[in-house]
Design a protein around this nucleic acid. Structure first.
Lengths: 202, 202
DNA sequence: AGCGATCTTGCAGGGACTGCAAACTTTTAG
DNA sequence: CTAAAAGTTTGCAGTCCCTGCAAGATCGCT
C-alpha cells in the first residue's frame, strides 16, 4: 500500500507523470493528424516510454484520449447519494454534474482539446460520459441507492442515461463556441429543458 | 442502378442473402461464445464466404451484430418530418420511435438475440441507437428541419440524444423480461416519464 | 547494502482491418 | 447467343492494435 500518511512518494508521482505524458501526447498528436494517422508507438515515443508500457496505463488507444479517471466515478457517485434528500433523483444528478462542470472548467484547455479531438473523430463520441458501461453502472447504483429502489427497476437507469445524454450534448455544444458561452450555462439550460419535459423553444 | 421496375435481380438478392447469413452467423456464434471468443474467420466460414468478403459487407466485426441498416435511418427521418405539425419535436420523435418499436417486434427473435448479445458484451452498448454518429446526424437534421431551426442550434441535438437514450434504456429493460411486458409499453412509459420532467416514481 | 515489491521493456503471436490484383459471375448490349 | 462491361469474391501481403510472458531495472523499507 506504500506510504499512508506521508506524501505520494516518488513511485506514484512518476506514474502520474507518465500517465499524464501519454495522455497529453496522444491528445496533441491526434489533434494534429487524426485518430488513425497516429500509432500507439508514436504516442509512446513522444512520451518517452515503450509501446508496451502504453498498454500498462491504458487498455486501448482510445482510453488515453478520453481520460476517464476511475476516481471521478466514485466522487460523482458519492455526490449523488449525498445530495439533499428533498431533491428528485434527476435533480440530484443535475447537481452532481454541476461539480463535473467545475472540474472541466478547471482544466479548460485540456478539455477543449479533448472535445475537439472527439468532435473530429466521431468514433470516440459514444464513449464520452454516457455509454461508458463502467461509469454508468456506478451511477445507476448510486441513484438506485438514493431512491431505495432495486437497481433492476427501470427508473434509475433511465434517469442516468438521460442525464448522461444531456451532459454530453452540452459538452459538444460548448466546444463549438467556447468563447460566447460557458459550459455551466449550457448544462443548466439543457437540464432545465429536460426538467420541463422538452417543449419546443418558443 | 440495375433494374428499376422489375424484381430485385439475382445479384441484389444474393447480396441480401450473404449479408443476412453473415449477420445471423455472427449473432449466433457471439451469443454462444462471447464477442472476443469468435473470430471474423469463423463467422465467415459459418456463412460460407471468405474472411475478406466479410469486410466487403461490414466495416468491423461489431457492425455485423448491430445491424444498423442505412435504410432505417431515412425512414425514421421521413416519419419525423411527416409527423403532425401540432406535435412538439419530442413528441414527433416519440411517434417515430413507435414505428421502430413495430419493426423490432416484427423481428422479435432476432432482436432479442441481438439485445442479449449486446447486454452480454457491453462494449457494443454505446453504439446501439444513440451514439451512432451517422444515424444521429440524420435525425438531428430532420428535427431541425421540422422546427425550422438552424441545425447548429442546440435543441434538435438535445431532443435527439435524449430520445435515443430513452429508447436505448427501453430496449435494455425489455431484454431482461421480454415475456412479462412489451417493448411498446416500456417505450411509452419511458417517453412519458421524460415528458413529465423525470419525476421520482411515487 | 540488500531484499521484496513494483514497473518497464522486448519479444512472440493472434487477430482486426485495408489495398491490390486476379479470378469469377451477373448484367447488358450487340 | 455472345461478348464486353460492370460488379463481386477471394487470396495475399502488410500494418496496427493488443496480450501474455519473462527478464531486467527501479523504488521503498529495514
Amino acid at each position: 500500500m506504500t506510504t499512508d500518511q506521508s506524501r505520494p512518494g516518488l513511485r506514484d508521482r512518476k506514474k502520474r507523470q507518465t500517465r499524464a505524458a501519454l495522455s497529453a501526447a496522444a491528445l496533441r498528436l491526434v489533434a494534429e493528424r487524426g485518430l488513425d494517422q497516429v500509432t500507439v508507438e508514436e504516442i509512446s515515443e513522444a512520451a518517452d516510454v515503450s509501446a508496451r508500457t502504453f498498454f500498462n496505463y491504458f487498455p486501448s488507444k482510445d482510453e488515453a484520449l478520453l481520460g476517464d479517471q476511475p476516481t471521478d466515478r466514485e466522487v460523482l457517485a458519492a455526490r449523488i447519494v449525498a445530495a439533499p434528500p428533498e431533491l428528485s433523483a434527476f435533480d440530484a444528478l443535475r447537481l452532481a454534474f454541476g461539480d463535473v462542470v467545475e472540474a472541466v472548467e478547471a482544466d479548460r484547455e485540456v478539455w477543449l482539446l479533448r472535445l475537439r479531438v472527439i468532435a473530429a473523430n466521431p468514433s470516440l463520441l459514444p464513449r464520452l460520459i454516457s455509454g461508458n458501461a463502467e461509469t454508468e453502472q456506478v451511477i445507476v447504483a448510486a441513484v438506485a441507492a438514493r431512491l431505495g429502489l432495486d437497481p433492476c427497476h427501470g427508473h434509475p437507469t433511465l434517469v442516468t442515461t438521460v442525464a448522461g445524454a444531456v451532459f454530453r450534448t452540452a459538452l459538444m455544444q460548448w466546444v463549438e463556441r467556447p468563447d460566447t458561452t460557458t459550459l455551466r450555462e449550457l448544462t443548466a439550460e439543457a437540464f432545465a429543458a429536460v426538467a420541463a419535459g422538452l417543449p419546443d423553444p418558443s
